[in-house]
């Protein structure tokens, strides 16, 4: 089986995440879609690492995991803050800033 299929899979996962961010309304789901995009990038990195025959890609995937974990901490803190006040995590409800 050629490793190229994994790249195709990662592109599909990335697209699912990217479209998900655009069409979903719940901040938590949006956030999960972004995580999906990051993990799709991880899959691509690891696969390219295999195709290229260098280890860099696998090392990069570790870095990305750490960064994604830090992002989760910040993101959930902000979403919690909004949820406490508004009792809703919908991004459509956060609409005070406009025009």
């Amino acid at each position: 089986m050629t490793p190229m299929w994994y790249i195709v899979l990662s592109a599909i996962l990335f697209s699912v995440g990217a479209v998900g961010v655009l069409i979903r309304r719940n901040a938590i789901v949006l956030f999960m879609c972004i995580e999906l995009m990051l993990n799709a990038a991880n899959l691509a990195l690891v696969t390219f690492s295999r195709i290229n025959g260098t280890l860099d890609g696998q090392i990069m995937a570790f870095f990305v995991m750490v960064v994604a974990a830090a992002e989760v901490v910040i993101g959930l803190a902000i979403i919690m803050l909004i949820f406490r006040t508004r009792r809703s995590a919908s991004v459509d409800d956060a609409n005070l800033l406009k025009y």
Partner: peptide
């Protein structure tokens, strides 16, 4: 808080694109 939420979601979205570009 709203500005933080918007900045965070869009910023994380943009950096996911950046990362896939790196890959």
């Amino acid at each position: 808080q709203e500005s933080a939420l918007k900045y965070f979601l869009l910023g994380a979205y943009a950096s996911a694109f950046f990362l896939f570009g790196v890959a």
